[in-house]
Amino acid sequence: MGGDAAGPVPTDQHDFALWEKRVDALMILGSARGHFTVDGLRRALEDMGEQAFEDMTYYERWVAAVNQNLIEAGVYTLEELGAKMATVTARGDTYGAAQDV
C-alpha cells in the first residue's frame, strides 16, 4: 500500500463501540495466553486479501484474525464455534440482546 496513489485522508472520527473494545481486549488477552503473536494476526489479516480491506471494518477484520489464530492454536474447534454462534444468534436480534446475561 505504501506509495500507492489515493485520495484525501478522511478525517471522520468515531469512538469505539463496546464490541470493538472487546475485540481489542480479546486480542491482548489471547496473545498474553500465548495462543498467537501480533505477527500471526497480521498474517491472517493479509491472507484475507485486498477486498476484505474494502468490505470489512477494522475490528471486523481483527475479530476474524483473532478467530483464525485461536482455531489454529486449538483453543476451540470450528464445530464449537458454529454451535456457539447459533446459540448467540438465537438469544436476540441486537448486540445487547445477544449477550448471555
Partner: peptide
Amino acid sequence: SGHPYRVDNDAPLSYWQTMEIAIRELM
C-alpha cells in the same frame, strides 16, 4: 469527546459481533 458512538447495542446483530460474543464466551 463529542464524537458519535458507532452503532452498537441497539442495532441489528452483525455476523462479526456474533463471532466476538462466541469467541469471548468460549474462552
